[in-house]
Design a protein around this nucleic acid. Structure first.
Length: 265
DNA sequence: CGCTAGTACTCAC
DNA sequence: GTACTAGCG
C-alpha cells in the first residue's frame, strides 16, 4: 500500500517528462509493474494455465522503448517475500481464489466481459513468468537482477550508489528509500512523471537548507504506513505541519501528546 | 479543509 | 501498487 496519497502530495516536486530527456542514462526498472500490466492482456490464458507470451511481448516493448531512446535498462525482479508481509500476501491469495471461482462461473453463464474482469483480478505474477522474461532479456543482452527480497530496496541501492541514474516504478515507497530521480506512470509513448529528491522541500513548503530527509521520512511514517496501526485523523498534511515546527527530527522520541496537542485532537 | 474508505484501474482489439 | 471521490469530523 505504501504511503497513502504521497504522489499527489509531492506535486510541487514532480514534473512531466519524456524519455528523450534521459538519453545516455542508465535506468533501474521495477519489472513487477510491467509484468502486472502485461499480464492484463493475457489474464485468462495465464489463469487457465494456457501458454502465452503476451506479458513477455509487453515487457520487451517497454524495454525497446528505453533502448530506442538510448537508455540502458537494468531490470530488477522481486526475490523472496518479506516475512513481515505474509499476512498481506495471504489476503491477496484468498482474493485471487475468490475471483477465479467467480470468473469460471461467469464464463459458464456466457458473461464473457464480466468473466474477463475477474480473470484480470486474479492474475498472479509467478516466478516462472519472471524467468521467461529473464530468458528473453538474456537473449537480447539486457541486464537483469533478482533482488534478495523485494525489488524496492535493490532499485534504491542501484540509484543511491550511482549504478542507475533513474528508477522506473509505480511504487511511491522508492521516494522514502532515498532515490534521487524516479519516473512514475511511464506510458508506451515514453511520457511519465519525474519526482526528484532535490525538489522534495518544495512540497513541504520549506527552503532547501531547512529540509531534512529524515524528517521527511518520519513525516510519512507518522501519516501512516503498512507496518504499524496508524493514528486516526493524521494524514500527510497534518504530519507535515507538525514536522515543520518541531526541531526534533526523531518521531520515536517525541512525545505522542505533543503530536496530539499540535494537531488539536 | 483534510482524512477515510469504497470503487475503478493497469492491456489492447 | 495506483487515482478519484463522496461523506464525515
Amino acid at each position: 500500500m505504501g504511503i497513502q496519497g504521497l504522489l499527489p502530495f509531492l506535486k510541487k516536486s514532480s514534473r512531466n517528462i519524456q524519455l528523450s530527456e534521459f538519453r545516455g542514462k542508465v535506468a533501474a526498472v521495477d519489472v513487477y509493474c510491467w509484468l502486472h500490466k502485461g499480464a492484463f492482456s493475457c489474464a485468462e490464458k495465464l489463469v487457465k494455465g494456457e501458454p502465452t507470451d503476451g506479458y513477455i511481448i509487453y515487457v520487451m516493448k517497454q524495454v525497446n522503448l528505453l533502448l530506442s531512446h538510448n537508455i540502458k535498462p537494468i531490470l530488477v525482479f522481486d526475490g523472496c517475500h518479506l516475512p513481515a508481509k505474509e499476512v498481506t500476501e495471504l489476503k491477496r491469495r484468498e482474493n485471487r481464489v475468490k475471483n477465479r471461482r467467480k470468473a469460471k462461473e461467469l464464463l459458464r453463464e456466457g458473461k464473457i466481459k464480466e468473466a474477463r474482469e475477474c480473470f484480470q483480478r486474479c492474475v498472479d505474477i509467478t516466478s516462472t513468468m519472471a524467468h521467461e522474461v529473464i530468458k528473453a532479456c538474456r537473449a537480447r543482452n539486457i541486464d537483469t537482477i533478482v533482488a534478495p527480497y523485494e525489488a524496492d530496496s535493490q532499485l534504491a541501492f542501484l540509484n543511491i550508489n550511482g549504478v542507475a541514474d533513474i528508477v522506473i516504478t509505480e511504487d511511491s515507497d522508492l521516494i522514502l528509500f532515498g532515490c534521487s530521480k524516479i519516473i512514475f506512470k511511464m506510458d508506451s509513448n515514453g511520457c511519465g512523471v519525474l519526482v526528484e529528491k532535490e525538489k522534495l522541500h518544495l512540497s513541504m513548503n520549506v527552503p532547501r537548507d531547512k529540509f531534512d530527509f529524515t524528517k521527511f521520512r518520519n513525516m510519512c511514517i507518522l501519516s501512516g504506513c503498512d507496518y504499524l496501526p496508524s493514528l486516526h485523523g493524521i494524514g500527510l498534511v497534518k504530519a507535515c505541519r507538525f514536522f515543520i515546527v518541531t526541531s526534533n527530527p526523531d518521531v520515536y522520541t517525541v512525545s505522542l501528546s505533543k503530536v496530539l496537542n499540535f494537531v488539536n485532537m
